[in-house]
């Protein structure tokens, strides 16, 4: 195995292959980052609606709870297929990348909605009561009382979810998004040995994910220190 890797390495790490791999790495990053930003916004909305009271919101609350619980229990691969074929049914002509992005957004929304919900719950209920006693509306309570305290609880797990999704987007290669794993498959099909190709792909994922994981751990410690 070693002779073959040593023999192929100069050709494998040629200029155009490197560009190809770096671009693919960018797609992996864009897919998970974009999905998580959208997921954070939508997930926040979902959590806020689920916490709101008001009888007329009840059907919406039920629907959102159902969706959140469902999408947390469907494997990413199946979600991808559902979105992929769902857009065909709707006759929408979207790029493969957008299909993958929508799937990531769906899953991210479901998971982050739960994170935000537990974040909002982590604020002591006295704070909610006090805000109500001071005649704050629900949105004012969130804006001035809850979110300033809750974001420190919410952010670290959202960040680790983002890192989780850098790895999970590897499945998007199955529908043909040219991200890191797909790039590996292409290079493997071009005749480079699997050990070299997939070893490098593993390493590239590691290079992408490890600094972010360290940053996330630092963030968690930092925010935990300022929280009381």
């Amino acid at each position: 195995m070693w002779e073959r890797i040593v023999e192929e390495a100069p050709r494998f790490f040629g200029y155009y292959n490197l560009i190809f791999l770096l671009k693919a790495m960018g797609v992996t990053f864009a897919l998970s980052a974009g999905g998580c930003v959208v997921g954070l916004v939508l997930g926040f909305g979902v959590a806020v609606v689920r916490r709101a009271d008001g009888a007329w919101l009840a059907p919406l609350r039920w629907l959102l709870t159902l969706l959140v619980e469902a999408f947390r229990r469907i494997p990413f691969l199946v979600t991808l297929m559902l979105v992929f074929f769902g857009f065909q049914v709707l006759n929408l002509d979207l790029s493969i990348f957008s299909v993958a992005l929508v799937s990531v957004c769906l899953i991210a929304t479901a998971f982050i909605a739960e994170i935000v919900r537990s974040g909002l719950d982590s604020v002591h209920h006295n704070q909610w009561d006090t805000a109500m006693a001071m005649n704050f509306s629900y949105l004012q309570t969130l804006r001035y009382v809850i979110v300033p305290q809750a974001w420190k609880v919410i952010l670290p797990p959202v960040f680790s979810f983002f890192i989780l999704f850098i790895k999970d987007t590897a499945l998007a290669s199955q529908i043909g998004v040219v991200e890191l794993t797909y790039a590996g498959k292409v290079l493997n099909n071009r005749g480079f040995s699997a050990a070299l190709v997939f070893g490098s792909i593993l390493l590239l994922y590691f290079i992408l994910s490890y600094p972010l994981a360290r940053f996330g751990a630092w963030l968690e410690q930092r925010l935990a220190a300022t929280r009381d």
């Binding site: 790895k167 590897a170 499945l171 590996g184 997939f198 593993l202 994922y205 994981a213």
Partner: peptide, 10 residues
């Protein structure tokens, strides 16, 4: 820090 899928590929 690496995807399970690529680990299994390897």
């Amino acid at each position: 820090n690496t995807p399970q899928l690529v680990q299994i590929y390897f």
